[in-house]
Design a protein around this nucleic acid. Sequence first.
DNA 1: ACTATTGGCGCG
DNA 2: AAAGCGCGCCAATAGT
Length: 560
Amino acid sequence: MEVVVALGAGRAHLMPDGEPPAVVPVEELPARVDALERHRPRWVWADTAEVYPALLSAGVRVERCHDLRLCHAILRHAAATAASPLATAPTGPWDAAGAWDALDHAPTLLDDLGAWDPAEVRAELGRQHAALAAAPDPGRLRLLLAAESAGALVAAEMRHDGLPWDPQVHDRLLTALLGPRPPRGARPARLEALAEQVRALLGAPGLNPDSPPELLRALHAAGLEARTTRKWELRELDHPAIAPLLEYKRLARLLSANGWAWMDEWVRPGADGRRGRFHPDYVPGGVVTGRWATRGGGALQLPKQVRGAVVADPGWRLVVADVAQVEPRVLAAMARDEEMARAGRGADLYQGLVDRGVVDTRAHAKVAMLGALYGATTGEAGQLVPRLTRAFPRATGVVERAARTGEAGGVVSTWLGRTSPPPPEAWHRAQRRASEPDAQEADRRRARQQARDWGRFTRNFVVQGTAAEWALCWLADLRVRLRALGDGGVPASDVGRARGPHLVFFLHDEVIVHCPAHLADDVAAAVRAAAAEAGRLLFGSFPVDFPLDVAVVDSYAEAG
DNA sequence: ACTATTGGCGCG
DNA sequence: AAAGCGCGCCAATAGT
């Protein structure tokens, strides 16, 4: 069963297939959805990020949906549906960012985000079905659309539930490293002491170490030949000021990125001042490759330094899981490279390369593999990549072809069919310029450089994008398994909070589930089963493993 | 006073 | 060591 939903002008249109539509005041939507959910319909709506937060606030969750906006974006650009009316139509409302984009809060039913014409919503669904039906091998795109839509549900749920965060632990951690919280705008004591030390040792009394040009001038005045103030360059310098300077930079980064101001803005404290929640705003499909982006709070960059503040509620546990070397494994499967898949049969694909004599050390294996995936040409990686080419011609052939296609200005697609954007007009201009009769050597060099740059992008696109598809399937399947575990008879850890095991964090190849302690083992098993299922969904019976590191912990800092 | 860009660095 | 992909965010700086 499918139910199409359209919101607008204070009303909600519910259009179950084969039944007469219902029009109700928008406040009644949660109750209506909840009532229909027992039939386990697929909810078809314009935009999960627009409608689902309000349902979650009302305590209503749904099993599955079809997100027209996200799916439109995929079909609009996919090579497999390029000839469809959906793809060839002029830019329309489905190509625009969601209206919630401008809000700084999760949209409610009362935010008037403009109206969706119910007929237009149904028409868009029809165009999407038609585009799929005309595509060669539509099964893959169908899987991608289902996974993308499930991801949208997960993203909204995780934003709603939040990542368990203990502000007291965070504060203790900051105080230990930086000194007690200073008044607004002032440097914490330890940071100021380090700055003063640097000023004294460089003989630069007024120096603000946060200013790269000032710092560079001070270094030069002290006789140090630095070209930039990057830490890996500073590390090479031999001077007593360098050690305190690097320590200053490390702590200044912590303060500005995840200090007290960050906590005030992004962590909603719990009633008891502990057990707060960090509510990042996930953006499914926010990255060209299909990875998620996030907005606010820098959830993609939670530094290891502060992960100790991610703490399970009393009586609850965190199940932290990440996949070992997803990208090479996905590449092996896409390329049907049995030899490379065999090297990944154990828990550590890099060690597998060493055991097969492809390279001599694990470190070299990693450098070589990343070099092949990213298109390294120089340095150590450039030296090592040819060994992989020899050992795994099928796998490396896939990324090489993707690179050649990009260099020539073409588009490439992931395993499930998400297609890379074409190069921008400026790129084509540069290529045309280079082939004109009066082109200068500089023009040709620029064109070659840009061609290679775009080739590295498309090279990586197929792998990063397919890995993102694997991760979406993992997430979607895991979500279903967690729902099946129920709440285990344990009430929510606090009023208004999620009951039962629920996803609280996702980062490319890593998930965290928050769960009642006695369900932790079941959750760990579910996480592994979902990973195996994701491999089957994408690659069928091709024998590729996706081994996980799974840890059941009280604090994120204990994992990995 | 405001916005856009740059340099730097965290994450995968 | 900082090449070789994808991001978001901060403070300082440049531009208007």
